[in-house]
Structures are given as structure tokens and as C-alpha cells.
Simulated scan of single mutants.
Amino acid sequence: MINGLSISVPVELIMPQIQAAIQASIDECMKNQPQPDPQYTAEQVAHLLNVDVQTVHDYTRLEAGHPRRLPYVVTHDSFKGKRFLLSDITAWQRRNQIDALQQVIPLVPKRPARRRATRKAA
């Protein structure tokens, strides 16, 4: 009531606008929140990278400063114990793709095979 004036509006008319404004506010807040980083098992990472599972485990055993070392998260809720974050996998791919592109492998022609002296049949 403002200066003796009151306005009555049915709730059914304004409720959709209120709900839309609330939903827009929620969407804006959720957009600014950090998104979860999915975790993968060694088998899933091997499938993503198109390598053998043992190769993935070998990448995790490399020393800390090695460019091919694949970081992982230790989990205790699984008997396998290692999970790989998607952000770490994509960073590993970018790092090793650039490394592979910068590395120049010289093409050295192979020496012709030496032929063994054949024995003459007696």
C-alpha cells in the first residue's frame, strides 16, 4: 500500500516471470562456478591415448621432471588406486605433441645388408 493505493495482482500472472528470473540468476551463478574434472582409470586412459595399459603405468613411473610423466591422483576407494584427471591428460597430450613436432629425427639411410658367403656344395 503506497499512499492509500493498493494493487492486487493474481499470483498466476507473475509467477512465470519470477521463476524465469530465478532460473536466469541460478544459471549465471552456475556458469561462474568451477566445473568438475572427470577422472579416468588406467584402462580408460590407455583407450583414449591408443596405447597399452602397461605403457600408461610406465608413464606414471617416470621421474617428476620428465616431460612424458603422466600425473595421477591416488584414490583409496578403489583397489586399483590411480585415477587420471582429464585436465592432466589433455595437458600431457599437448606437451608431448609439441615435443614430438619439435623433435627432428634425421633420416639416415640404412646400410645395405651384408651377404653371407654361401658355401659351395661339394
Rank of each mutant, 00 (worst) to 15 (best):
I26W: 06
A46V: 04
R61H: 07
Y40A: 05
K82T: 13
P71K: 05
R83L: 06
P16N: 06
L70N: 02
P16T: 09
E28Y: 01
L49T: 05
H57Y: 14
L70I: 04
V45H: 04
D58N: 15
G81S: 10
N50H: 05
S6H: 08
H47P: 00
D88M: 08
L48T: 06
T60R: 05
V45R: 07
M30K: 02
I14N: 13
I2G: 10
E63I: 09
D77F: 13
G81A: 11
T90M: 13
K80R: 12
A24I: 00
E43A: 15
P10S: 04
L5N: 01
A64Y: 05
V74T: 12
K31C: 01
S78T: 14
I22W: 13
K31N: 02
R69L: 10
V53F: 11
Q44V: 10
Y59V: 15
C29S: 11
R68W: 12
V53E: 07
T41I: 01
T75N: 14
D58F: 13
D27G: 00
P34D: 05
I7F: 07
G65K: 15
M15D: 09
T90L: 14
H47A: 07
I7H: 05
D52I: 00
H57L: 15
A91V: 03
V11F: 07
T90H: 11
P71Y: 07
H66M: 06
P16V: 04
M15Y: 06
P38N: 12
T55I: 07
N3P: 03
A24L: 03
D58M: 15
L5T: 08
Q17F: 13
P16D: 06
A20V: 01
F84P: 00
R94H: 07
P38Y: 09
E43L: 14
R83H: 03
V45D: 04
L86G: 11
K80A: 11
T41F: 09
T60H: 03
P67Y: 01
V51I: 10
M1R: 12
T55M: 08
N3Y: 10
M30S: 04
K82P: 03
L5P: 00
D88K: 01
L86S: 11
P34N: 12
Q19L: 15
T55D: 08
Q54R: 09
I2Q: 14
A20P: 00
T90R: 08
M30T: 02
M1H: 04
Q93L: 15
V11C: 14
T90F: 11
D77Q: 13
N50V: 03
R95M: 12
A91Q: 10
D77S: 12
P34E: 07
I22S: 02
V53H: 05
R83G: 01
F84V: 01
M15V: 09
T90Q: 09
D77R: 08
